[in-house]
Design a protein around this nucleic acid. Structure first.
Lengths: 219, 219
DNA sequence: TTCTTTTGTAAAAGTCGGTCACCTTTTGTC
DNA sequence: GACAAAAGGTGACCGACTTTTACAAAAGAA
């Protein structure tokens, strides 16, 4: 809610900058210029300056950016300094993997609750995360004040579960199902359709042969 | 190699059309108009017509599209009619999950080989997929004529493994590591940075509060 | 002080995707 | 067979973002 409108393209680059700043910091580097950064993260230096400028004047003219200051700034901005709990709904193949997946080498994001309809899995602990039955979802989400959920349920339950999540006050859903969820405008959906992604990749290979093309996820 | 330049946005919609066409076909529907399709897939009818038109004249004026014809066309275009083998490198948490993951309900994509540096995993079969040691990678990729790989290795090996993949003739890499791989222009990279994705989602929630925003992966 | 470096940003240019509007073709009805 | 209705194909346009250019302003360096 802090800053005005950060372009989506910029927001997607922030974690990249953040990652590299960490490397610099750990290497004991004090200062860095947009030009140096540019080479490392493969983003035009002007774009980097423009990106940074959305947050105000972070650097010093004729000097560059102070690595530690910048790092701390991003840490705050990206909420790396506090823990964000997220929920995972649907402990199937993929769901289970994500429980194990070390979300960000850092420790700012943690899956603190999982939910599954399967009675055998519910009420157990999987990969260190407690799994609750679907009936407890709303309650748990509210108790734990979770407002981000990862959706890895089968296609045919996707919309229903999404509705429940919304009803429970969730504000962001990372949707791994191929379904286009319909939710209120206040809820943000991040679609991650792995099968689609892979298929598109294959499609481009077969039909374009060669060409550059480092496409992001979400683009 | 066939058609000219299909916009990325269009390419990403193709699997969506395909999915719905299957439903129509199974329901015994013979014809469908862009307007009808529009409602079902929530894409403007003009956009649908435009999308289709990249492939030539697939419909009949005053009539619409023949469901079966269209389905078959897409089946070919999306390579749903033949099996594409892909490899997976790095059988860790995420890698293991993807082995289990039913890539596309259909059966056109299959992970037919996996590779891992870990001696304990190599030479076993995980979730029905044979796991080879890294030393055998190049050989296996060539024997099995695999040109798409899924990269789920630890960060510090990402670039090295990517280099090996390229050397083995791989043409497309679905990169799950946060590293920006540098590869020849002839190799297509599809980045899927889950942590980044999640972080961006959280970032937007915290800083924008609410607003519409069904953002896709990629763009 | 003066020169050099490097930021911050206004403005320009580019990119891409979506939508409109209209023409053409085919259907289907009388 | 003629004509109205339906629906695809497509050129042109619009609009939203993004990137890049370009340069003044500020800070450091000597």
């Amino acid at each position: 809610m802090a800053e005005a409108k950060i372009p989506k393209a910029t927001a997607k680059r922030l974690p990249i900058y953040y990652r590299y700043l960490n490397i610099l910091f750990n290497a004991g580097t004090n200062r860095v210029s947009s030009t140096e950064l540019s080479e490392a993260v493969q983003v035009d230096s002007a774009t980097i300056r423009r990106d940074f400028s959305y947050f105000g004047a972070l650097g010093k003219r004729g000097y560059g950016y102070d690595v530690e200051d910048l790092l701390n700034f991003f840490k705050k901005t990206l909420n790396q300094d506090r823990l964000t709990n997220v929920a995972l709904v649907g402990v199937g193949n993929l769901g289970h993997a994500l429980l194990n997946y070390n979300f960000q080498q850092t420790n700012s994001v943690r899956i603190s609750a999982a939910f599954d309809i399967n009675e055998e899995i519910a009420n157990t602990i999987q990969s260190g995360v407690p799994v609750y039955p679907m009936a407890d979802m709303k309650e748990q989400l509210q108790i734990q004040q979770i407002d981000v959920a990862i959706l890895t349920v089968p296609i045919n339950h996707a919309q229903d579960v999404a509705d429940e999540l919304v009803a429970a006050g969730v504000k962001g859903i990372m949707n791994f199902t191929p379904i286009r969820l319909s939710v209120p405008a206040t809820v943000r959906i991040q679609n991650v359709d792995l099968a689609n992604e892979l298929q598109t990749l294959i499609y481009f290979l077969d039909h374009y042969g060669n060409e550059a093309g480092t496409s992001d996820t979400a683009k």
